[in-house]
Simulated assay, not measured.
Amino acid sequence: MSGPVFRPYVLPAEGGCRCGALRFRVTAQPIATAACHCRGCQRMSGSAFSTTLMVPVEGFEVVAGEPVLGGMKNPALQHSHCPECLSWVFTRIEGAPFLNVRAVMLDDPSRFVPFVETCTAERLPWAETPAPHKYESFPPNEAFGPLLAEYATLIASQES
């Protein structure tokens, strides 16, 4: 049995909230993809987990609308929502060179496959993903470099 196929995104990729008032554009390949099972993500997404594209900050722009902060309104973890429909669209992490875009907010989310699965200790028993890397909480800091390198290699192997 073969594993999941990780393909590069066709760029630029566009997306937006449910009502269309907040629109964004992604112009850089994600550095990784993930599904998070933490209770916070479950509650904010209204689902079993949230989907994430980790996009370099310089490869993301809001092209319509003005996001508002939601969630816990933690200055270090800024969850951005549409001001009209309140959909959770992306998250900025203080000091991180990337932001987390909700993959399901892309106009075409069909290429999304989670590479890393986090907070599996909080996972609903039936919620499974094909992610090859699974962590009970978040990956330890020393794991990020090798994970990002492996993801980059997988994407590069599909770009030809």
Rank of each mutant, 00 (worst) to 15 (best):
G3C: 00
G3V: 00
P4S: 08
F6K: 05
P8G: 05
Y9S: 02
Y9G: 00
V10W: 00
L11T: 09
P12S: 09
E14T: 14
E14K: 11
G15C: 03
G15D: 07
G16S: 04
L22T: 02
V26F: 06
A32N: 07
A32H: 00
T33E: 09
T33D: 07
C36A: 06
H37V: 05
C38W: 04
G40N: 13
G40M: 11
G40I: 07
C41H: 04
R43K: 15
M44K: 06
M44D: 08
A48M: 11
S50H: 10
T51E: 10
T52M: 10
L53C: 01
L53P: 00
M54Q: 09
V57G: 03
V57S: 11
E58N: 11
F60S: 09
E61P: 02
P67A: 11
V68A: 05
V68I: 15
M72Y: 09
A76H: 09
A76W: 00
H79R: 13
S80F: 14
S80R: 13
H81K: 12
E84N: 12
E84Y: 03
S87Y: 12
W88G: 04
W88T: 10
R92F: 09
I93S: 05
G95A: 09
G95P: 06
P97L: 07
P97Y: 10
P97H: 11
F98D: 03
F98A: 07
N100H: 13
V101W: 06
V101D: 04
R102P: 01
V104L: 15
L106C: 02
L106Q: 01
D107T: 01
D108W: 02
P109S: 10
S110D: 05
S110V: 05
S110N: 03
R111N: 10
V113H: 04
V113D: 03
V113W: 04
P114G: 03
E117K: 02
E117V: 02
E117A: 14
E117L: 07
T118H: 01
C119L: 07
C119R: 10
E122P: 03
L124M: 14
L124F: 14
A127L: 12
T129A: 08
P130V: 03
A131W: 02
A131T: 01
P132E: 01
K134Y: 01
Y135K: 07
Y135G: 05
S137A: 15
S137G: 09
S137M: 08
N141K: 15
E142K: 09
E142N: 10
A143W: 01
A143E: 15
F144D: 04
L147Y: 06
L147I: 06
L147P: 08
A149T: 12
A149W: 00
Y151K: 03
Y151H: 10
A152P: 04
A152M: 08
A152C: 08
L154F: 08
Q158F: 12
S160F: 13
